[in-house]
């Protein structure tokens, strides 16, 4: 009797989970593995190609152009994540401490760019930074610029736009973790004569670390794989790995090379975030112990 109940339970669990497992296996795991396979093809064809070699990877890492693009992509990703953290933390923190009614419209502003299509947001930035755009006409009118300047097509513009796009992820991650930190802890710190900075450093930051890490990783991975923004805002002058891959696949139709680049991006991104998490994790444990004593 008990056996059959158990079996029925197992069957229903399996039936409930099967569609999702099937979907994600066939259309997430299999495509990624297929791409991995293609990246080991020697030529530039993938449907007709066969064989197994490290040609694409050797070519990527031996060409100094690609390694410099990889480097720049990572540096850019780091800058974007750090800026998002610095300006996203205070915003997320204050959102968490607001009353629900005050929080409402602010949360909507944070969520809008997240749900809105990326191209629309980028298009908005073209209006801000364009030759006849908001900043140029404003600065020419008040006399900062004597004539309109080219504000697009440089790395700073790409970084600024990426920060705006991915900032909501940081704000929301910080907000969700800070709502779980009881305000009583801050009052206790204040009673112990800690100023706001000490409270922030010794109480808030350690407790908010998990949310910060989630936000940081998300922003970093999204930034290094961006290709729409670098193409439209950066143009041909700003090379990022994502736009290079897009070009390689969609214009040059060189699949094995594009696949290898995509995998370098994927694996190095994963490696970086894993290292960061390990570092922050061990730091957190030792520091947490120190603070507790």
């Amino acid at each position: 009797m008990k056996q059959s109940v158990l079996n029925r339970r197992n069957v229903s669990v399996a039936v409930l989970l099967a569609p999702m497992v099937l979907l994600l296996t066939c259309f997430l795991v299999v495509p990624v593995l297929g791409l991995l396979r293609s990246s080991f093809l020697p030529g530039s064809e993938f449907l007709a190609g066969n064989g197994f070699s490290l040609t694409q990877y050797v070519r990527f890492f031996s060409d100094s152009y690609y390694s410099s693009v990889l480097m720049e992509t990572f540096v850019d990703g780091l800058i974007v994540s750090v800026v998002c953290l610095v300006i996203g933390f205070p915003t997320g923190y204050s959102l968490a401490r607001l009353s629900p009614s005050a929080r409402r419209w602010r949360t909507m502003i944070v969520i809008l760019p997240l749900t809105l299509s990326l191209v629309v947001v980028v298009f908005g930035w073209l209006i801000i930074l364009g030759r006849n755009g908001l900043i140029n006409s404003l600065f020419v009118r008040i006399g900062v610029f004597s004539s309109p300047k080219t504000l697009l097509f440089n790395r700073v513009a790409v970084t600024v736009v990426l920060v705006q796009q991915f900032l909501p992820f940081m704000i929301l991650s910080v907000m969700s973790v800070v709502t779980q930190i009881h305000p009583v802890l801050e009052q206790a710190a204040a009673n112990l004569r800690a100023n706001r900075f000490a409270t922030f450093r010794r109480v808030i930051v350690p407790l908010a670390m998990p949310g910060v890490l989630v936000g940081f990783n998300l922003v970093f991975v999204l930034s290094i794989s961006a290709f729409i923004t670098p193409r439209l805002i950066g143009g041909a002058r700003v090379a990022m790995l994502g736009s290079l891959i897009y070009e390689r696949i969609m214009s040059e139709l060189n699949w094995p090379s594009g696949a290898a680049m995509a995998f370098v991006l994927f694996v190095s991104g994963l490696g970086f975030t894993a290292a960061l998490n390990a570092l922050a994790g061990s730091h957190l444990i030792t520091k947490g112990r120190g603070n507790a004593l």
């Binding site: 994600l24 990624v32 699949w255």
Partner: peptide, 19 residues
């Protein structure tokens, strides 16, 4: 269930196109 969030869009896009 949450893994689609960590796979870069470029990787998923090209992978699906190839499949």
């Amino acid at each position: 269930a949450f893994s689609p969030l960590i796979v870069p869009a470029v990787v998923l896009g090209i992978g699906l196109l190839q499949l």
